[in-house]
Computed example of a mutant assay.
Amino acid sequence: MRVLELLEEIEEIVDTAAGFPLTGKIMVDSQELLEIVREIRAELPDEIQQAQWIKNERERIIAEARTQYEAVIEDAQKQADALVENNDITVKAKLRADELMRVTENTAKQLKIGTYDYLDSILYSFQGKMEHLSSIYFGEMFTSIEKAFDDINSALAANRDELKDMAYRTQMDADDIPAPSAESEEEDQ
């Protein structure tokens, strides 16, 4: 599965990234990580297509069950019409037709219930797999990315504070230099 390979690539980037001494922070190429995330997004439609296939398969099974149900009903009706010719046979035929209808309806219900159970088990399994993938890979990936961004922001803030401190010291040093006196200005002229 291509998504898993891409997630492993992100793990490798994080594992092999250069670290900042004594901070536990690492430096990674954000463009490279973003490109991998884009590739993961491109691969996800395959998983969605599998879910669509399951939905289509469910609809096909239900349609097939409905067709079988209607065929059995039609067959029972034909048998009942043929037996109408004789009154004694007609009574027996009606009883038999009613029995066939009950059997047919029970069979159709059982087929529907079996279909629903089958589809539910497939969807449940797929849902479990998606939750497992999400909890293992996406949680770690987004946590790692979020940590990387937090580390970068912290480093930038520390650098800005250092620059502000240096500017302040430079300003203070400039204020300590005495202003040129009038005599030194005349000597310069």
Score class of each variant (00 low, 15 high):
T23D: 04
D29V: 06
E9Q: 06
A71T: 07
S154Y: 08
I48Y: 08
K92L: 15
K164I: 15
N159I: 11
E185T: 09
F142D: 07
L33P: 03
G114P: 02
R102A: 11
N106R: 11
A158V: 11
R41P: 00
E186I: 14
E35D: 15
I54T: 07
D165V: 02
S184N: 11
E140I: 07
Q68T: 04
T143M: 11
Q31Y: 11
K147P: 00
E11Q: 10
E131N: 12
E70Y: 07
G114R: 02
K147N: 07
A148D: 03
I10K: 00
E64M: 12
A148P: 00
A42K: 06
E162H: 10
L100N: 01
R60P: 03
A182D: 15
K147Q: 08
R60E: 14
R96G: 04
R2L: 03
E39H: 03
L44S: 03
D46A: 07
I73S: 10
I61F: 05
A65N: 14
T170W: 08
I136L: 10
M172T: 13
Q110G: 06
I145V: 13
P180Y: 07
E43F: 01
R2E: 09
A71D: 11
M1Y: 07
L33F: 05
S135H: 04
A158D: 13
Q68P: 00
D120S: 05
S125K: 10
E12T: 14
K55H: 14
Y116I: 14
D46I: 10
L34H: 03
I89F: 09
D117K: 04
K112C: 11
E187L: 12
G139L: 08
D151C: 07
I89V: 13
Y124V: 09
A179F: 07
A17N: 05
L83C: 10
T143E: 15
K78R: 11
G114C: 05
V3A: 03
I48T: 09
E99D: 05
E35Q: 13
F149L: 14
L163T: 10
P180E: 14
A80M: 09
A51W: 04
A76R: 06
V91P: 00
I89R: 13
R66L: 14
V37N: 04
R160G: 02
I145E: 02
W53D: 08
